[in-house]
Design a protein around this nucleic acid. Sequence first.
DNA 1: CTGAAAGCGCTTACAG
DNA 2: CTGAAAGCGCTTACAG
Lengths: 333, 333
Amino acid sequence: MKQDRPKISDVARLAGVSTATVSRVISNPGLVSEDTRATVQEAIRASGYRLNQAARNLRHRRTGGIVALVPNLANPFFSQILSGIASVLGPAGYNLLVADTRSAGADMLLDYAEPSRADGLIVLDGTLPAAALAGRVPVVLACEWVPGLSAPRVKIDNRAAAAMAVNHLADLGHRRIGHVTGPQGNVLSDARQSGTAEALAARGLTLAPDAVYPGDFSLDSGQRAAAQWLAQPVEQRPTAVFLASDEMACGFIGEVQRHGLHVPQDVSVIGFDDIELIAHISPPLTTIRQPRAAIGRLAAERLLAQLNGQVEPDDTILPVELVLRASTAALLL
Amino acid sequence: MKQDRPKISDVARLAGVSTATVSRVISNPGLVSEDTRATVQEAIRASGYRLNQAARNLRHRRTGGIVALVPNLANPFFSQILSGIASVLGPAGYNLLVADTRSAGADMLLDYAEPSRADGLIVLDGTLPAAALAGRVPVVLACEWVPGLSAPRVKIDNRAAAAMAVNHLADLGHRRIGHVTGPQGNVLSDARQSGTAEALAARGLTLAPDAVYPGDFSLDSGQRAAAQWLAQPVEQRPTAVFLASDEMACGFIGEVQRHGLHVPQDVSVIGFDDIELIAHISPPLTTIRQPRAAIGRLAAERLLAQLNGQVEPDDTILPVELVLRASTAALLL
DNA sequence: CTGAAAGCGCTTACAG
DNA sequence: CTGAAAGCGCTTACAG
């Protein structure tokens, strides 16, 4: 299209040196004498030369890109993680490519795990097939993880986090405690549900089957869980509910309020994630905060470390935090 | 790293043909006889050959990537737009690269507008300098736009959308109508504020200076606006407020409720965007819906059209929709 | 229909 | 410290 883009040979001609020297001035100036360097730099300036990354990458047999595989790009939960990833990838000279695994086919995934496509992968979707990812470009798993795939993981302790939520409710005197789960087959759902059951058991309580409401992290599923809860007899239904995501908690509270009941008077509600908005709803939501930006940053750092040859397959577990707001209260006797 | 990745010459040797023929089988099979094609395809299969995109791109003088320049990746507003963009770019064989313009320096932006970095740009940040973007790779502006930069725009009619909001409030009998603005210097803020003033004027009402509250689209700024509103004398302050974003509306409502007042009884509130969550808060928020996924899809399509040589510098204006929920009500006399 | 050869724009041992 | 030359892995006019 543009024949005017100067290339390295144009600069070389202008400066009266070889292309090798120009290349050195660009990528390893220490190798070049001060005089030559100045001449070349002037020629670069004068010609308006800009490095062609694609050519350099081909030569280096790398792509300069890192792909983030996200289950659902439209879900705001991931935007802050991406933001964290971008904040370390950019300065390190890598492009961040994003792909939505829900809308991409299986063959697309294979393409993304191609060394010619990306130098590494940050996988945020635990439902991907391990086989498609194994033995290809370096991978880091963030938040979710792919069972059977050995790769560094950057995550929180979901069991312990769930226990934290449950203990908070139990500390407030609640004994009938319910749980709204994440989607079936999701590693996070499982971990949070077992964490819930274990924490209850540790306090002599049980997670009754009719106190477990199936959800899928979405607002709508939280609303449906509330409908189920509302349909139960008052003396049987949980007085406090731990939901595996803030979105669900938001949907739950909205539905409960729509039926004239009050949070936390009629039911205490605790969520998970600490997405920004839920601090501003009424009542502000008590929740477990996940350090999303930090997860993104660390995942990116782990991947860069791998690319630089450091081998560190250990998991990184980030701390969560109980954020107390107004949606939970002591059980009224 | 891996010496085992077969290249086109390996396949050629295996099939007993030239590399040119292999290349043709891959990218233009019609040019090759059926027999040869079968032999080559078998050799590809047997060798496990996969095309090296970087090399093809260098040869084609393209990168295969489109960069989306987002003001703030952590803001959920953009995730659905990105999702729309990704849904058309993927099938068209392009990678979606994302960059956060807030965290990237000015020189980084120049890099992104490099033909060696990306084949095109989707700009979602109207505050970027036109000079940095002009005369470089093809650009499409989405949502926001850069004044003075001539490029196709995919957006809504922000003035008309603001008028829609204001008219709804006026139809409910409100006469003192307030407005919480977006950030200073943002093209959307300006358009929505003038739309508000014009619509009021058209009905014989005015936008009083003390009924304009400065915001920046964020939750916190909505909360601050509410504090300002609460500090005004009851008989002077607006009975209805139009906020330039849902996040601000959410912050506004939360603060008003925290002070014991009720929405919409004490003040009607209408937002902008229709982000998912605000349908589930109490009261559910009346708002103006922006078709975010469609904006993303269309922006991507316009860009692909440009890349294919179609010239169409016209703007695409997408329709908005008034979504009636419970946060607005008739003025009580 | 097929092949030899040049070239996309860089980088880097290898000499000197 | 610098240059000539090969090569990263493809594609595509040009011949035949």
